[in-house]
Amino acid sequence: MILGKCPYCEGSVIARDFVAQGKKIKLYTCEHAQKVYDESESFVFTAESTCTFRVYSNAFLRWNKRSFSQYEMKKLLQDGQVTIRLHGRKGTSEYFKYVIPDKEYGVSILWDEEVEKEEEKV
């Protein structure tokens, strides 16, 4: 399924089902960012890859957000940022932050930016 245009190379970003450590997750990847296992069992980009945009749906698990949804990825690709809901350590408190594309990590949270109240509906 095509979600939008890559923020770096204008290729199509697609969603794929992926299994990591026995759990099903989504991988959002640019069509020009292919990875394979090499001789040393490392997961590396192929020589034909011209882009590195890849985001796993569990990227925000550390902040108690179980999944970065396809809707959130579409909005990120369309608007250049998206508001996500994160949770405190015990899962009781919640807060909202902006997420933007990041060349090195796929996506980054803007910790120093406050989310405006009307955008907290996502």
Rank of each mutant, 00 (worst) to 15 (best):
G22W: 11
K26D: 13
C30E: 10
G22C: 07
I25N: 04
T52K: 13
G11F: 00
S57T: 10
V44L: 03
R16A: 10
G11H: 00
F45M: 03
R16G: 08
L27D: 14
V55P: 10
A15K: 14
I25M: 14
V44N: 05
V44R: 06
D17S: 11
V36P: 07
R54T: 14
F18W: 01
N58K: 01
G11D: 00
V55Q: 11
R54V: 13
C30R: 08
F60C: 12
C51M: 00
V55D: 06
S57P: 10
V55S: 06
K35A: 12
A20V: 07
Y37T: 14
V19I: 02
C30G: 12
T50E: 05
R62G: 09
D38V: 12
T50Q: 10
T46L: 02
V36R: 15
A59F: 13
S40E: 10
Y37Q: 11
A47Q: 06
C30F: 04
K26N: 14
G11R: 00
W63V: 01
D38F: 03
L27S: 09
C51Q: 02
A20C: 05
F60Y: 14
K24F: 12
T29K: 14
E41S: 15
I25T: 02
Y56N: 14
Y56L: 14
V36Q: 11
S42I: 05
Y37K: 10
S40H: 11
W63A: 04
H32V: 05
E31G: 14
T46W: 02
H32T: 08
N64W: 06
A59M: 11
V19S: 08
R16C: 10
Y56G: 14
A47N: 02
I14S: 11
I14D: 06
S49C: 09
S57D: 11
E41P: 05
K23M: 09
V36Y: 07
S12Q: 13
I25G: 05
V44K: 13
T50Y: 02
D17V: 02
D38W: 03
K24T: 04
F43M: 04
C30Y: 11
F45K: 10
C51S: 03
N58T: 06
A59C: 12
L61T: 07
F18Q: 00
T46C: 08
L27T: 09
Q21V: 08
K23F: 13
K35V: 03
T29E: 15
T50P: 12
L27I: 09
